[in-house]
Design a protein around this nucleic acid. Sequence first.
DNA 1: ATGGCGCCACATTGGCGA
Length: 256
Amino acid sequence: MKLATWNVNSLKVRLPQLLAWLARAQPDVVCLQETKLEDANFPVADIEAAGYRCLYSGQKAYNGVAILSRRPLTDPAVGIQGFEDEQKRVLAATVDGVRVVCVYVPNGESVDSPKYTYKLDWFDALRVWLERELAHHPRLAVLGDFNVAPEDRDVHDPRLWEGKVLFSVPERDALRRLLDLGLADSFRLFEQPEKSFSWWDYRMNQFKRNMGLRIDHILLSAPLAQEAKASTIDKQVRAQERPSDHAPVVTELAES
DNA sequence: ATGGCGCCACATTGGCGA
């Protein structure tokens, strides 16, 4: 089973790229973030024509998440249980016995912003909810844009980013506490090229200069981590014309 | 120190992302 996550930064704009990527990469399950579409405008027909079922939870202009799957999606759930949030950032469903959770963690804006407080509160609520979800679903995967680079090696210039939003200690601690529930950062289960990133700012040719961050992650519970075969970041997608600022991350599980 | 780019909407400028 090939699991993927991609922040598309507008599904309306990126739909042709998504369809081309599905055909090339052949993922089984794809979690999308920043679809920026109300549910009424979700391109269901195009995605079904490509061979994928879909679940989506969106809003106008901001946020919005979706799960695409070749196999049936069951037991859908919207949002973090027990956490009121108008922003559409979380969607979950079960595919072939794997509980798939798609997350779009708040950006935080800057460490002195109210949005940063919201981000940390949001992480807390996510952790509490995921702990319960794990108890019910031992085969659990959390995929998405976490808006946190976990370690120095996930940042092109850690000294420059030290203390900044996306790399501040409280954010990294919040992500660490998720991993401490018994989730593995699947990308790091395998040997990887140095300076592997999943996001590059549009400005200043940062992609060409590989000045990025690794903030998009696929976390796997222990039974799934044992089955992981490979994990990669699809940089080709970021090199296209009119790209999203994020590249897809893909983790493959052995057939079980 | 600031803006750079791209997308969106009560749009031709400002909010937001990261």
